[in-house]
Design a protein around this nucleic acid. Structure first.
Length: 277
DNA sequence: TTTGGTGTTTCGAG
DNA sequence: CCTCGAAACACCAA
């Protein structure tokens, strides 16, 4: 569920709630597989008494920089949430890791499907160095995007979902960006003209920024659905033009939106606006 | 009640 | 290098 805009929203929430500067006084682990690289005992020993210096996002990772130059990487995968609350609050059964802070609050990791992961390490680059560029950064230019795409023989949809190619896109924003750029998701990357690449570049940045501006996309209202660190739903669902709008009208041309499967992922297109070349 | 689908990532086989 | 299928797990809608 959480893609770049949702993760960015959570990071901004936690920064606004003054998580940086707080010290971890202890931890509880209720599902050991969430901690990907350490045993529960090692994790608790290494995180206790560490102060959180800085909080930021890279791709879909939430990164907590700690005062001994180690970092805690948090990946929410499908259904993870991260939020602050009073230590006195009763534990929800989906809260799998709880960090106690020195201000009577907890940082709690909640995840109905238990796919999310936390990694505490002094060598985060072994994970982060494989990630593609940040699509909203100044370094991600049309010129660079042209270079990235021209050698790729893959289909656009699986390519854009590949975090080693470009960071932060997931199923929702990929479908939305391809619709805006009027590109069929099965188009082979290397066949794009520089003009179409420029269009796609603009579309990707537009849908991600719009998602951030609206504090993320929440569909449905189940326990696995996106909620910010302030336990609020995102407002971006109203801006979705194709995603999960099967059989509804394309906002641009009125044609009924189709749902197809590409790379085992549900994919939504307007068959008139997005022609398969 | 049972089934199929879910916004992610990783792994191995071909 | 690329594609596919499966797996990790719980929930929800049909």
């Amino acid at each position: 569920m959480p893609e770049l805009p949702e993760v960015e929203t959570i990071v901004r929430n936690l920064n606004a709630a003054s998580l940086p500067g707080k010290t971890v006084t202890g931890a509880n682990i209720y599902w050991r597989k969430i901690i990907a690289n350490l045993s529960p005992g090692e994790f608790i020993q290494k995180i206790t008494n560490r102060t959180i210096v800085k909080l930021r996002r890279r791709a879909k990772f939430i990164i907590l920089d700690l005062d001994n130059s180690s970092q805690l990487l948090v990946h929410l995968r499908m259904s993870g949430r991260l939020y602050l609350g009073p230590t006195s609050a009763t534990r929800n059964k989906h809260e799998h890791v709880i960090l106690h802070l020195n201000d009577n609050r907890d940082l709690r990791f909640y995840d109905t499907r238990k796919f999310g992961r936390m990694i505490l390490t002094k060598n985060p680059d072994t994970i982060l160095q494989n990630l593609g560029p940040e699509p909203l950064s100044d370094e991600f230019t049309v010129k660079q995007f042209i270079t990235m795409l021209k050698s790729k023989t893959r289909q656009l949809k699986p390519l854009l979902l590949d975090q080693t190619f470009i960071a932060g896109l997931g199923n929702i924003y990929t479908d939305e960006a391809l619709w805006r750029a009027r590109l069929h998701p099965l188009t082979i990357a290397a066949t794009l003209t520089p003009y179409k690449i420029s269009t796609l570049h603009t579309a990707i940045r537009f849908v991600l920024q719009q998602g951030i501006d609206n504090q993320g996309t929440s569909l449905g209202d189940g326990q696995s659905n996106f909620a910010s660190a302030e336990n609020r739903r995102g407002n971006n669902a109203r801006n979705l033009m194709v995603f999960r709008r099967t059989d509804q009208e394309c906002p641009r041309c009125g044609t009924k939106i189709k749902r197809i499967i590409i790379g085992q992922r549900s994919t939504h297109i307007c068959p008139k606006c997005q022609k398969h070349p």
